[in-house]
């Protein structure tokens, strides 16, 4: 575990070191125009933190359901060889429910991007 943190910290130091190097070499002359939000030369109107398409949320929700399902698959895949037919049927049942869920979402139009 400690070794992992050494590895992680070396990576972070590398990035910060690169930023520090650019801090010393790069010019630093901020102006009003330079610090304004880039919008292809137009004046920015209002904030960008606005409401966006609800679809992103629906797909996020579907992702969470499937990702949790996938997490159960990993230990099952590791031991399938020794557990045999019983484990397969159990997981086939589980995946069948997951598949039904996908079919339901599909039918209800939750997977359409409008």
């Amino acid at each position: 575990m400690l070794e992992f943190f050494v590895y992680l910290i070396v990576g972070i130091i590398f990035v910060l070191g690169a930023f520090a190097a650019s801090f010393f070499f790069a010019p630093h002359k901020p102006t009003e125009k330079k610090l304004s939000t880039y919008e292809c030369g137009e004046e920015t109107v209002g904030e960008s933190w606005i409401q966006y398409n609800i679809r992103y949320y629906l797909f996020g929700l579907a992702f969470v359901i499937f990702d949790v399902g996938v997490l159960f698959l990993v230990p099952w895949a590791l031991t399938l060889k020794s557990l045999g037919m019983f484990a397969f049927l159990e997981m086939a049942f589980f995946l069948g429910i997951l598949f039904l869920g996908l079919a339901y979402a599909w039918r209800k139009g939750a997977l359409e991007w409008i």
Binding site: A26, P27, K34, L35, T37, S48
Partner: peptide, 9 residues
């Protein structure tokens, strides 16, 4: 050598 810009907003 490029300037590092942090937008005001």
């Amino acid at each position: 050598m490029k300037e590092d810009i942090i937008p005001k907003m």
